[in-house]
Amino acid sequence: MSLESLRAANNIERDNTWAEISFQERIDTAEFRIHERAHITVNGDSCRGCTTRECVVACPANLFVPTSDGGILFNYENCFECGTCYLVCNQAGAITWTYPEGGYGIVFHRT
């Protein structure tokens, strides 16, 4: 269902639709205690051969960014530590996944 078809079906004017927040605003609602060590590392060489790029779509924190040279840029700072990326990854050895140091990383409040 596209947004446009939904609007058409319900005679919804653009102004009446839900005001979406930006991804940055969304991720800023969560608390991350960032450690200096990256708890997940991504081997860019493995990513160059990857055509599916599942992590880019699936990571709920949007931490995997494709680069123009075919690699993947990864940020660990706003990670939910959910495990989606290593589960969907089909390139052996591309993602090295551990939990952050004790006391660091995501801290949920009202979840």
């Binding site: 927040i21 605003e25 969304r26 991720i27 609602t29 969560a30 709920p60 924190a61 939910f80 959910c82 495990g83 989606t84 589960l87 949920f108 409040h109 009202r110 979840t111």
Partner: peptide
Amino acid sequence: EVIEYSAHV
């Protein structure tokens, strides 16, 4: 208003 976004497997 979104006050917290979260994810888990």
